[in-house]
Design a protein around this nucleic acid. Structure first.
Lengths: 231, 231
DNA sequence: CGGCGGCTTGAAAGGCATCAACATAAGTGG
DNA sequence: CCACTTATGTTGATGCCTTTCAAGCCGCCG
């Protein structure tokens, strides 16, 4: 029987911190007190609500988040998807409060850092500056494909986007889609039925396979082809 | 007859620099050498092409830019609109080269600063840090309305977006739309005919008036209502 | 095993694109 | 300054893609 000691927990934590986006901010022992705390969210649990004041940035250790608002007709509008190893919260710096609610798409662990500590550390360690600008710049490019016109185009681009953001060397073109078709539809501005139909097409054409929630991309080139707008 | 002396030129420049987004980086005489140069672009002139390496950020003094790519079917896809007093270029930090071409929508003057100078100065003057994060954060929120489903919703949100980004105290809900319907359509993913039809609707319902390219918003509330998704 | 959320599939309706023709504005050169 | 040319905006008719509504299926979890 395994007895979990503080040491083991520590090891588990540090190993999960290796890839953390806040690594530069906390792996160093001298700085570890800056991280306010780790938060564990169950599926569908809220990280924060709409309109809540902005204080913290979050590094997503595992799991995924969505930000969303509800329109007057009661439809959920998903504004952003944030995955493992990404930093969430930048978008709220501008208005000083969160524009959207943020909810866990699955069991999710985030590391919280206060924005003021973040700024402070950034000033002490200017070599982090480019890293942060780099990561914000990356988020500026997220969701560019939402401007694509046709549904297959958007969905193909979405799959490629998520895959490049999730895939590692081990996982080779096979990854867990961390959300329901409903969520995808709300994100892409498409009905769930449309998502289902188009994915069926993709499967029929041997472009991807889906079992459970695992997507396997068989023909990346064909997907990019579709995303690029070829017919 | 007016003789233009260096002094007058200097006054003209500084006055045009008052509102400049790079103000903090160059108004101070000690720093003025950091700005590499001012570039004047004619309508439809390219600031840079697709795939060009990223070296500079640009503060838009006057005029406007669009970034775009051409899809395989030859359609122009506008990814971003950048207006007077905004900073353009952040999105290319991530990939170190520009993902899109950038073109002037009208006569445009930009101030160019090299990214390395920018980083350097940011390190020397950490009080600028929040300002820059603030501005990047703002850009993260741009174009959120592109996810809106219906055409009138998108167009209403677009008008409101541009107006808040262009309006000053003097100009009071009346502003120059710095682009063609073609451009708007390419940006919103709608046909120019659709833009025309919906704007005609807006005019008929006394929500806006348009003369030349000047838009006057008569009923802001109704516009936000439409943008929010009421019918 | 039974219930529920999520996915699938079909038929009908609707919104927007497309095509076409025209109107108007802007830009050019004589 | 005007005639010509080109770019941009307007309006109508048709067709297609996606939504919507409806029903059934599957897999998961208690």
């Amino acid at each position: 029987m395994l007895i979990i000691t503080r040491n083991i927990i520590y090891l588990m934590l540090t190993s999960s911190c290796i890839q953390c986006s806040f690594g530069a901010f906390c792996l160093n022992k001298a700085q570890i007190n800056i991280i306010k705390k780790e938060r564990r969210l169950k599926k569908n649990e809220l990280l924060h609500t709409d309109n809540q004041p902005f204080d913290h940035l979050y590094a997503i250790q595992c799991g995924a988040l969505k930000t969303y608002s509800i329109d007057p007709m009661g439809n959920e509008l998903i504004h952003g998807i944030y995955l493992k190893n990404e930093i969430y919260g930048y978008d709220a710096i501008y208005k000083k409060h969160h524009l959207f609610s943020a909810e866990a798409l699955s069991e999710t662990v985030v590391c919280e850092i206060s924005y003021s500590s973040f700024l402070e550390l950034l000033q002490k360690k200017p070599e982090l500056l480019h890293l942060i600008l780099y990561r914000m710049s990356q988020q500026l490019t997220f969701g560019a494909y939402l401007k694509f016109i046709t549904a297959p185009q958007r969905l193909a681009a979405f799959i490629l986007d998520i895959s490049t953001r999730l895939l590692t060397e081990q996982s080779q073109s096979r990854f867990l889609l961390p959300m329901t078709y409903q969520d995808i539809g709300n994100y892409l501005g498409l009905a769930t039925e449309t998502i289902s139909r188009i994915l069926s097409q993709f499967k029929k054409n041997r472009i991807i396979t889906i079992e459970r929630k695992y997507i396997h991309i068989l023909q990346t080139q064909l997907l990019t082809h579709i995303a690029d707008g070829f017919k």
